[in-house]
Every structure is written in C-alpha cells, then in structure tokens.
C-alpha cells in the first residue's frame, strides 16, 4: 500500500509539518540531519541501543556499503516515534520490551527471526512489531546519505541540459527498440 499512500500525499495537507516549525534550511546543504549532538526524544539509551542493533540486523553493513548503524537509523526512528501518536509510541515501547525479553531467553538474532516468521500476515504483537521496525529501518536507511549514495548509488537529483532517453543496451531491446512514434489505436 506504499504507493497508495504516495498518491494520497497530494491531499495530506493536514499532516504536512509546518515550515515554520523547522525553517527551510534546517541543516547546511549536504549535511545529514540528525545532527551529531542529537538528544534522544523518545527512546531511553537502552532502547536506542536495542533499536540500533535490530536495525543493523535488518540492513547490515556488507562489502558494498555500510548499514543501518552507520546511517544512524535509530536516531531517525527516535525522532519519528517521538512525533507520532500515543498508540504508535506504545507499540514501540511494548515491542522493544518484548524483543528484549525474547532475546534474554535465546538471542537477539533468534528474537528477530521469531518476529519475522509470518511477515505479511502477522498474528502476534511481536510479529506486528517486526513490520513496524522493518518499515522504519527502510525509511531511515534509504533516505540517509549512506543509503542513497553509497548503497543505491542513486545518480539523479541533478541538473541536465537534455534528457538522454534510453542509452542502455538491454537484453530484450537488442533486436531494436520500438520508435516512440509507432503506435496502436
């Protein structure tokens, strides 16, 4: 339902944060928000540590790029949860507590695996929390400088004097790309 939400954003006037709350240049160009002196707003230090470990397990560092820990996803999560409603805050508090309890009985890796067991059709609170935790990790990591530039190596958001069109030779197009002018009607 991700894209459905995107369509709706057009009409989400009421949810858009007010500009005057942050100003238009909340941080210097090119510098990540979540400043180095960021103070936790919702998580306790212990909770933040747990979120940091869990998000790194969901999107870990690999030879290609750093992971969620380096991208400071737990601090992004803290800001997002801190500015969410009571129900969401309660779910995080309870979910982290439960994850910690599961980890005490086995290990954090096993607790996370248990929570992810029925992804897409969660039946328990722990499984529902996994969906929330993973979604937050995705949002935080792929909007970070590390996620965008180092992992995905995104090439856009730039000024071009002309759009080049399709310049790739791709397998199914090798026998000739149809002309934009050909049509059926």
């Amino acid at each position: 339902m991700r894209r459905r939400k995107a369509l709706k954003i057009v009409a989400l006037a009421a949810l858009a944060p007010k500009l005057d709350a942050w100003g238009t240049s909340a941080c210097p160009p090119g510098e990540a928000w979540t400043p180095s002196d960021y103070q936790l707003r919702f998580f306790t230090a212990e909770e933040n540590e747990l979120v940091d470990q869990l998000t790194e397990m969901i999107i870990p560092a690999d030879p290609h790029s750093p992971g969620a820990h380096a991208a400071r996803v737990s601090l992004f999560a803290d800001l997002m949860v801190a500015s969410s409603n009571d129900a969401i805050q309660k779910q995080w508090r309870a979910g982290l507590k439960q994850m910690q309890e599961e980890a005490t009985q086995s290990s954090l890796a096993q607790a996370l695996a248990k929570s992810a067991l029925h992804e897409g059709r969660p039946a328990t609170d722990l499984e529902r929390f996994f969906a929330v935790l993973k979604g937050m990790t995705i949002d935080g990591y792929y909007t970070s400088a590390i996620g965008i530039h180092q992992d995905l190596q995104y090439q856009g958001n730039t000024y071009l004097s002309a759009f080049p069109g399709c310049t790739l030779r791709v397998r199914s197009a090798q026998s000739g790309v149809p002309s934009p002018k050909s049509e059926v009607s």
Binding site: K18, L19, M80, N157
Partner: peptide, 26 residues
C-alpha cells in the same frame, strides 16, 4: 522556499509525511 532539490537527509523527517510539499500547505 521550494524543497525540490533538497536531499531527504537534509530534512528532519527525510521528506516523508508530505514534508517536501510543506511550502504549499502552510
């Protein structure tokens, strides 16, 4: 005032929650 070319990580909510269109929803 447009936030068109801002990178998500330059904004507090990373451009989520309709943040990049905030100038139109004051």
């Amino acid at each position: 005032q447009f936030l068109s070319h801002k990178w998500p990580y330059e904004l507090p909510y990373r451009g989520l929650r309709g943040e990049k269109q905030a100038p139109f929803h004051q």
